[in-house]
Design a protein around this nucleic acid. Sequence first.
DNA 1: TAAAAGTATAGACTTCGCTCTATGCTTTAT
DNA 2: ATAAAGCATAGAGCGAAGTCTATACTTTTA
Lengths: 119, 119
Amino acid sequence: MLINELSKKTGLSIHTIRYYENLGMIKGLTDEKVKSNNYKHYNSNTIERLEIIIEAREVGFSLAEIKKILTSWFETTDSKPETLELFQAKIKEIDDKMKYFKQTKRLLEKVCEKIQNDD
Amino acid sequence: MLINELSKKTGLSIHTIRYYENLGMIKGLTDEKVKSNNYKHYNSNTIERLEIIIEAREVGFSLAEIKKILTSWFETTDSKPETLELFQAKIKEIDDKMKYFKQTKRLLEKVCEKIQNDD
DNA sequence: TAAAAGTATAGACTTCGCTCTATGCTTTAT
DNA sequence: ATAAAGCATAGAGCGAAGTCTATACTTTTA
């Protein structure tokens, strides 16, 4: 599929997809058989990768961090202990953030109660 | 307490604290009795506010949004329905983000398993 | 009393993550 | 065959959230 279809399937703008491609987070391939253009083709793996990007950026991970996650998940075969440690640290980060989420949610709920009781 | 102490108690840099003060998210008071300087004094309420800021920015809320939360929590007495709706929407946002958190956490756990099994 | 450290204000600079514009080539539609 | 739409690259611009620097005054310390 070409970039337009990819954009529609993921909900990301064409500009954003190209931005991620420039950062090396996804990769389209130009069809060797067609030499008249250099249009890039994307496959279902690209969609998978973009969905992971969307999820992880919601969590607040930087694009650089997300790139590492993608590499370890899709490309790397070696099992470096430091990579393992990195991701274990990320899991801990998520758990920590969950705490902030729960606290902030509770605060917002209290704010709502306060507003409703001020009638 | 002066800004240096506030910085140490919250872990935020003096620059960041001043930045938040310029945005109107916190407010220090100059001691009227001391006219020779205009040093600002902060109290425990400022610490509370900064702790809320730290929590909520982890959640991904913008400083403008956080400012609204602070105002509703500490200052406002009126109960506008649109404010209530705003915060209810924010609570929903948090719930949605929680889903992404769980998915990303699961992915990271799988990445860790993959690394460990590749031995 | 002189030096060092703390405080305030203003504004420049930086990074991140887009977003948009210009230009030019290719393909599709009429 | 011409116009419209799609694709690519390069680079400019932007808003958010800091971060840093310069300058000047005040307070503390030696």
